[in-house]
Amino acid sequence: AQEYRALYDYTAQNPDELDLSAGDILEVILEGEDGWWTVERNGQRGFVPGSYLEKL
């Protein structure tokens, strides 16, 4: 798994998404072809927009 940093804040719109704060460090589990990536942070897993992340 790769570590990424959130570039922007994101507020989850659905229960299966995660909130992001700019600067958060996340582990990317799966890069979805639809642009939604499965990530894990502090034991929580959910979808976030891949375009909001940069690889560390």
Rank of each mutant, 00 (worst) to 15 (best):
A1D: 12
A1E: 15
Q2W: 10
Q2T: 13
Q2S: 11
E3H: 13
E3T: 11
E3L: 10
Y4D: 00
R5K: 14
A6Q: 00
L7K: 13
L7C: 09
Y8L: 11
Y8S: 12
Y10E: 00
Y10D: 02
T11W: 06
T11L: 08
A12W: 00
Q13K: 15
Q13I: 06
Q13T: 12
Q13Y: 04
Q13S: 11
N14H: 13
P15K: 12
P15G: 11
E17R: 02
E17I: 01
D19C: 11
D19Q: 05
D19S: 11
L20V: 12
S21E: 14
A22L: 06
A22R: 12
A22C: 13
A22W: 03
G23R: 01
G23P: 00
G23A: 02
G23W: 01
G23C: 02
D24S: 04
D24P: 00
I25S: 08
I25F: 07
L26N: 01
L26Q: 03
E27K: 15
E27H: 11
E27Q: 14
V28I: 06
V28M: 06
I29N: 05
L30H: 14
L30V: 15
G32F: 05
E33Y: 08
E33M: 09
E33T: 13
E33N: 13
D34S: 12
G35H: 03
G35L: 03
W36F: 15
W36G: 04
W37Y: 10
W37P: 04
T38R: 12
T38Y: 12
V39H: 00
V39K: 00
R41S: 13
R41D: 02
R41F: 15
N42K: 09
N42V: 06
G43P: 01
G43C: 06
G43W: 02
Q44L: 13
Q44Y: 08
R45C: 05
R45T: 12
F47P: 01
F47Y: 14
V48G: 00
V48H: 00
V48P: 01
P49F: 02
P49Q: 04
P49S: 01
P49I: 06
Y52W: 07
Y52C: 11
L53D: 01
E54N: 04
E54P: 00
K55I: 08
K55V: 10
L56E: 07
